[in-house]
Design a protein around this nucleic acid. Structure first.
Lengths: 226, 226
DNA sequence: GCGTCATTTAATGTATGCATTAAAGTATGA
DNA sequence: TCATACTTTAATGCATACATTAAATGACGC
């Protein structure tokens, strides 16, 4: 067999979905704004067809809303939305933590988890908030992967996209997450120890706290619509 | 204001999505089968465009998979899929039960829940399995509604669609769900009593048991792909 | 001035045609 | 007979044209 070229055959619809997702999550397309299909198509250099298809996909992911004749609306996130989403994230991630413990991973299986914790430590030491946030995301996605439930993983990923902007917005008004890493270590250690209930609870209380903090920050800073 | 005609302005794409969903969930489009866009379009009496859009939506809901040049594949459900899905349903529904308890609904707010329980009793008395299943669905959707988390409700609905066929398939090989209604009553009573933890746990153990039973039935009856 | 109705406008919804390309089929030579 | 390269086929991906219709505009009567 020859080395096949990985031209990464990606369709315009996929490109549109990914680029739009990126633009939404990063705030390039601001929350609450409306965009006509034609406008987006021009922006992405393609016809309306793939753009329409992409918007349907993203609507299913809760990132925008297709409003006939008004263009697609980038959905803003309110503190209430955050509460809803965090409630789900909390329960699904905690389940994943427990399952990961049950599966009985060895130390090497948990390398990525440990590395992400180390990365958070390092970022924290330098007060590099964005670095910390990136490492935190890494920790949480890896946790979901270890949980071994693909559907739960997908759901958590979808919801994480929905709250990404809001998380970033609070990054600069929140206290440095000093305590967070103790939590993460506790979760990892419980997984390593194969302790379902401890892993679940440790992660649960971590998420409940960080979720409550975020919502509190949004309210205190009057970030009612991100 | 005059009484406006509710012509229920529904687009072809929506119709396609709903009709296809119905056909998939009911088994009219059998699990594991492939269907070309052209074929489906002809079947629904419309062009390929709305069908394509509908398939993208349904793919996002986990009901089918778009496989270029092979047609869309109706996704079958395996016992492993059931385990994944039930794990999520269990945790989200239990959360909803707890939240419902916290909200503090009055007796009249719980009328629909109680009625669905009564309907299950009645169906059971006549050994009307399909009637029981319908009432059971009613109970579970109402529970999610009472939980007050729209996103969780949507996710549970989506997953329920995914497992619908499998549930129906086991309906005829399972023992009559005699005990189930005690569970449902316990959940309702805990909600009425405003007892978060009791509601959560009662529903949790109910779901764990019924989920385990279903998976067991699928395996025992070699229903590996529904 | 103001509310109502007709007209216009523009954005979406749908159908269609064509380009692209994976897969199937076919021919060729070792 | 089998592997390989070529040809054909047919299904999708995308662009485009057109139909539909909500919203905006403007005309009209009061």
């Amino acid at each position: 067999m020859t080395v096949t070229e990985q031209t990464s055959k990606t369709t315009s619809t996929q490109r549109a979905a990914e680029e739009l997702r990126q633009m939404i999550v990063s705030g390039t397309l601001a929350a609450g704004t409306d965009h006509l299909e034609t406008e987006l198509a021009a922006r992405l250099g393609m016809s309306r067809t793939p753009v329409r298809e992409a918007t349907l996909v993203l609507e299913g992911q809760g990132l925008l809303e297709v409003r006939p004749r008004k263009g697609v609306r980038i959905l803003p996130i309110s503190p209430e939305d955050m509460e809803e989403i965090y409630a789900i994230l909390t329960t699904l991630e905690s389940l994943a933590a427990g399952r990961a413990a049950q599966i009985g991973y060895g130390r090497s299986d948990l390398a990525e988890l440990s590395e992400s914790i180390a990365a958070m430590d390092a970022a924290l030491a330098q007060e590099d908030r964005e670095g910390w946030a990136a490492a935190d995301s890494r920790f949480h996605s890896e946790l979901m992967r270890l949980g071994g439930n693909k559907r739960a993983e997908g759901i958590v990923h979808m919801l994480s996209d929905q709250v990404h902007r809001a998380r970033m917005a609070t990054l600069w008004v929140r206290p440095l997450p000093e305590k967070s890493n103790d939590d993460h270590r506790r979760v990892r250690d419980a997984i390593r120890a194969g302790n379902f209930e401890e892993a679940r609870q440790a992660h649960h209380s971590h998420r409940v706290q960080s979720g409550a903090l975020l919502v509190e920050l949004l309210r205190r800073n009057r970030l009612f619509s991100l």
